[in-house]
Amino acid sequence: MNEHDPELYGLMAEFAEADALKTAAAAARDAGYEQMDAYSPLPVEGLPQILGMHHRRMYWIVLVGLITGGVLGFGMQFYASVIDYPLNIGGRPLNSWPSFVPITFELAVLVAAFAAILGMFALNGLPQPYHPVFNVRAFKEASRECFFLCIQASDDQFDLEDTRWFLQNLPSVKGVYDVEP
């Protein structure tokens, strides 16, 4: 990490509009930068794709949660009613599966919901107590009104002067900041 400039996490450019950020991210991608991230106070449509995000992993995680919860839920009821404590009530089948459906469904949803939030945290690396971007004073506005693009020093193309020049010349850029590590 940070082979080029050990003293810097990266360079950050500030924009006032979501579209300007999208344009900038596309320009940076076209210029060959890969180690970068964009920050915005609201989700910007199309921006993750520009940054090369095509993840569908969330869907798989939730699907696995759904199936796990369902199998465990049904398995618990099956084990209790058929294997561990079979009760013959009027000759009715021990595996009376229709009455096991509600609990199977509830547990499937429960495990899937936990998978959805915990999977999101895990993929996003949250909770994260420290991150260099917060060292930029203006970054406070990332949760209020401003949009930021950060090119990391770990990128192969990163060169302090060139990258700074590149960011400063992006359309409608409001400022370029050094990000302390």
């Binding site: 915005s40 989700p43 993750p48 899937a112 959805a116 996003n124 949250l126 107590p129």
Partner: peptide
């Protein structure tokens, strides 16, 4: 939890939020 509004985070966040809505 250290939320910083990263575009990559928003992406997964929205997926997660919509999936939870679909479950709820």
């Amino acid at each position: 939890m250290g939320w910083r509004g990263s575009a990559k985070h928003w992406h997964r966040y929205e997926q997660s939020y919509y999936l939870m809505a679909a479950l709820a």
